[in-house]
Nucleic acid binder design. Structure first.
Length: 340
RNA sequence: UCCAUCAUUGU
């Protein structure tokens, strides 16, 4: 069992989920009963690869086997429930947790709060959060994000302060979430306070924090600060570039956005589907019709990125504002999506 | 097994 497990663990770590599953089956064919570690490796990999249905299918199978899931198993299964917004499944796992006395485990507790959060059960998430006997930074983050994503900004900020009063130090995930709240509220003062916190605590090299900062200044209308934060970023991942391109887009600075798009590629960063939406949004805000078509056609042809419904919306707006209603209609009827 | 949370996109 041990050697099979290390093989499985090896393929899990190198990201070969299929390989891990194959080994898992071969092991059983060889007459060896998988133990808890084998199960956990496979379930965790399914969950991380986004094979959420697969994860949920395996969990009951495991309960039939003569071994018991442990907190690590539960956390993986709950995160699959969260991504699928499978509230019923999640509640069953919750019962399982209570029956087995796993609720005191901090990983299980945070995953459980997150499951309710992603299923939009804000009240239930808060009830579980309040009952947690152990809370670490992730437990707080999960609850703050729950409020932030369900438009309870006040509760989110209140919790952010309570977290610090409780002696838990915010990490880069906390800060990124809190900044995204300032963005949505267009609260420049709040945002600047968080920025000074970031500087005081030397968190400004984190790419999550940087992209959130760029976004916050853009949404709060301070393009000068966008430039400043961006220029000071020496580590720029695709999200930081996306944020700065999108920031210029919403300010009607289409030419600058396109320049940034080319600089991004010169620096060796590959555009993703969000980049193209930002670029098309820039064209749309600045009425750049021919450029818009150029990038819309190029994204599939040259980059293999399929236009999303967001991209079509940008193009329809672009054509509509330019008075080209015929082409706008044609584009809508050619969309591989239901118009929303 | 080392796993749970976070940022950037259209209207």
């Amino acid at each position: 069992v041990i050697s099979w497990n290390s093989l499985i663990a090896g393929s899990v770590q190198s990201g070969h989920g299929e390989e891990a599953l194959k080994l898992f089956h071969q092991m059983q064919l060889g007459g060896i009963t998988p133990d808890l570690d084998s199960w956990n490796a496979v379930i965790a990999r399914c969950s991380q690869d986004g094979h959420n249905e697969e994860t949920l299918k395996r969990f009951p199978g495991m309960k039939m086997a003569p071994i018991k899931p442990n907190p690590v198993t539960i956390a993986s299964v709950l995160s699959a429930c969260a991504r699928l917004m499978a509230l019923q499944h999640g509640k069953e796992v919750h019962c399982h947790i209570l029956r087995n006395g796993f609720e005191s485990n901090v990983f299980v507790g945070s995953s459980l709060v997150d499951m309710y959060a992603k299923c939009k059960s804000v009240e239930a998430a808060r009830r579980v959060f309040d009952m947690l006997s152990q809370r670490n930074v992730v437990s707080w983050n999960v609850m703050i994000t729950c409020y932030a994503q369900n438009r309870h900004s006040d509760d989110a900020l209140k919790l952010f302060h309570q977290m610090q009063e409780a002696g838990v130090k915010p990490d880069s995930a906390t800060i990124a979430t809190v900044l995204s709240i300032s963005s949505n509220l267009m609260a420049l003062q709040e945002g600047k306070q968080v920025h000074s916190y970031i500087i005081r605590h030397a968190m400004d090299s984190d790419v999550f924090v940087r992209s959130a900062l760029v976004d916050m200044y853009a949404k709060c209308g301070s393009i000068a600060d966008v430039q400043c934060v961006f220029d000071q970023s020496y580590q720029r991942n695709v999200a930081v570039w996306n944020a700065v391109i999108a920031g210029h887009a919403i300010h009607g600075l289409g030419e600058d956005a396109l320049t940034l798009f080319h600089q991004m590629q010169q620096s060796g960063i590959k555009p993703d589907h969000i980049t193209f939406t930002a670029v098309l949004s820039a064209c749309s805000h600045s009425g750049m019709v021919s450029e818009g078509w150029q990038y819309f056609n190029s994204m599939t042809r040259d980059y293999g990125v399929k236009p999303s419904i967001e991209d079509y919306t940008c193009m329809v707006n672009l054509l509509g504002f330019a008075g080209n209603l015929d082409n706008a209609h044609k584009l809508i009827s050619s969309m591989p999506f239901k118009p929303d």
